[in-house]
Write a protein that binds this DNA or RNA. Structure first.
Lengths: 249, 249
DNA sequence: GCAAAAGTGTTTGCGGTACACCCATGT
DNA sequence: ACATGGGTGTACCGCAAACACTTTTGC
């Protein structure tokens, strides 16, 4: 049982891919990476992801990918599922890129997909670290992703939508202090429909998920100042585990 | 693009494990395999599973495991998620068994878990094919599974419970013709609580998921003969995809 | 006739939904 | 004064929940 382990190596058959969602106040965004393909003018848009190290936990790998890209730690994150279609990396342009970075680009890779929710204020992509650059993209526009990342992104979004109905996860997309309008717009964007102001407020308050702050105001807006809220941490952890059976959206 | 492919090989890092559920009319059962460990009197109870072939689709691998064990095809099956804790195979007795069958028993294996629902009448374990024997086990008793299979089984069951609330999947556990009592008992066992007869019937009929059969009777029972039902196939496929938002159990 | 499960309606309460007006603020 | 979003209360409806008695059959 010596402490000297063999050097960690990337397992060529296993990867994680992360659908990282953000909310800018009016639209749901997905954080994508643009990768340049040598010998080709076309660029690939992909989800952030990487092969997994031998002996690295799946959740850890996903956190690592997120951390390396954004610098963020302790971000809400949830596994969606595994994607392993043998053809998932076999499109012509995908192979072109893989050949430039993988020892065995032909190899089938099973990827474990995660989605995660970040407060967009906590991370602004820098204009191209090196060959690759990250950017926030509107989810609806995000057609034409490389590999099967389109499918993964939609699966992640579906999962998010379902989870949002029974779990208090939306807050991960918002700043600490937020207005009811912010919160409602977030729900509307994700659920894909408008909600009634009064009913929404009632529901949220009944669940005791949000608390009003004394510091009740915004400033300088051309209308009545809105009350600020934060979410109730203790209820959060409870409901995160158990969910609430009938949220009723 | 010649048709001659390299021989399929098992990928040492990837497996599938299946939580196969059955219903005997009063209890929910899980199909487990008892594996003898050489050089040890103790036997391991595991979920059916296997390494995945290179280039084999995940769903295909899961179907293969089920087919090889039970002979059944076209069975309802759903991915739960991937399990990849580096320590998941590291318990002492688990290692003992792995050493007897794996080239690299130390290797971390990521397993993709599935749950599947079968009609127990379609498969009765034969008393020990060879070194391994399968048997139906009550889910609640199924403590002491090898590896992390306990955790996987519970995760699969949780998934089943959630899915049952919004999807018409329970029928996969029943024979083609069944009574309302059968159906209700099934729901009660999975949801873990009793349900009201009349309310249950109403709900099921409103969803138009079950149809009464003319052949209305059982026989030789010491009470009023019950109507037989089958499930409505066309609604089934519809609701399977879309779910029904408010099932309301 | 007795035990055992089948079958059947009604009432109550909660929660979801729909809906319209006044308020505070900046320009 | 006007435009903009903030904030509030009520009425209705449908669905889930609770609940008890009669029927058929085998023994």
């Amino acid at each position: 049982m010596s402490k000297q382990k063999k050097v960690k190596q990337l397992n060529p058959s296993l990867s994680v891919d992360c659908a990282i969602f953000g909310f800018d106040g009016s639209e749901l965004k997905l954080l994508l990476i643009e990768r340049s393909v040598e010998s080709c003018t076309k660029k690939l848009l992909t989800l952030p992801g990487d092969l997994i190290f031998d002996g690295e936990d799946l959740d850890t790998a996903a956190s690592r990918v997120l951390k390396e890209l954004t610098g963020l730690k302790n971000i809400f994150m949830k596994q969606v599922r595994a994607f392993g279609d043998p053809k998932r990396l076999k499109k012509r342009e995908d192979q072109a890129w893989l050949r430039s970075i993988r020892a065995k680009p032909e190899e089938r890779v099973v990827t474990i997909a995660y989605y995660s929710l970040v407060n967009m204020n906590d991370y602004t992509p820098k204009p191209s670290s090196f060959a690759q650059s990250a950017r926030w993209v509107n989810l609806d526009k995000s057609t034409d992703l490389a590999f099967d990342h389109q499918e993964i992104a939609f699966a992640a979004f579906d999962q998010l939508k379902i989870n949002l109905k029974n779990h208090p996860i939306g807050f991960n997309l918002l700043p600490v202090k937020f207005t009811f309008s912010d919160l409602q717009k977030l729900y509307e964007v994700i659920l894909g429909r408008t909600l009634d102001k009064r009913n929404f407020r009632r529901k949220m308050l009944k669940l005791k998920l949000v608390e009003p702050l004394n510091e009740k105001e915004e400033e300088g807006v051309p209308h009545k100042r809105s009350q600020l809220f934060q979410f109730n941490t203790s209820n959060y952890v409870l409901l995160l585990e158990n969910g609430f059976d009938n949220f009723g959206f």
